[in-house]
Amino acid sequence: MARCKRPIDELIAEAFQGSEFALGRLLSLIEDGGAAADLISSHVFPYTGRARVIGITGAPGAGKSTLNNALVKELRTGDIRVAVLAVDPTSPYSGGAILGDRVRMASHVGDSKVFIRSVATRGHLGGLALSIPQAVRVLDAVGFDWIIIETVGVGQVELAISDTADTTIVVVNPGWGDDVQAAKAGLLEIADLFVINKADRAGAEQTKLDLQQMIELKTPTPTWQPPILMTVAIQGMGIGDVAANALRHHHWMEDSGRLVEQRDRTLWLEVENILTQRCIGKVRKQVQQTRSRSLRASFADRQLDPIKIANEIVDLVD
């Protein structure tokens, strides 16, 4: 990479003073992982925990970026600072990505209190990039009041957002779901707020009814019923309601003690993930070594089977 090497503590100091360039560079180092990312993460951690984190998820084309754009505008009052992490998929074929969410967020480029960063998934599944939790903490530490994470267009199994965000907004459209709600359980179960976007289209009321029935069937979280909100995000309709309910949910999380509980659980999960990643590295190395050392590197004669070899290696990895 051609970028100048700058001392990390210098970058951190500048980012805390408001330099977008330094902040941008820190986020790149976080994305690239490794020792620099670890150093930054440890440095900023004591300053985190203040920002409110919203996740926006939903199917491709549901209007996540448009809703995000309108929500940023709604939250941006006075000195309130808002950061956006917009995740788009990396092509599994080329490793490249087109990060186009900014096209719908162009109206904020003149607002000095809005920071937008595009993030490619780089092969990570679950609708987010691996580095997102760490990126959120950097933004939190430098003083953003709200952080909005927009996932890639998701189906039913990309649920990582609900671990990372305090409040998860699931965006759907009229006509979505109908009578196959059960099949979509995954995405619906993580919603703290439902938004039926493009609600000026036919079928919005029916979709609301479907969602209501689905919520009633679900075992409710004590005292929190996900509200179902109607928006036409491109016209800014209903967005005030979304912002108000996101804030209401956040207050409920705080007052009920769930905020601390959920953040703790997520951080312990992160410890587990970090260790899992490291173990995978160790396992790979051990398998390679066993293979290159072994005189019987081929399974062709069927003298060994994978389970026996794995059992032999397990003791070595410990």
């Binding site: 977008e20 360039f21 902040l23 941008g24 990396t90 490249g96 087109i98 900014r102 003149g110």
Partner: peptide, 28 residues
């Protein structure tokens, strides 16, 4: 560029130079 493995950020049309620079900084 995407097909060649680059991560490409596209801004859309009619951007002011000052804003292009700001986006370049934010996106590094």
């Amino acid at each position: 560029l995407r097909d060649a493995g680059f991560e490409v950020i596209y801004t859309g049309i009619r951007q002011q130079p000052a804003y292009i620079a700001r986006i370049a900084a934010q996106e590094d």
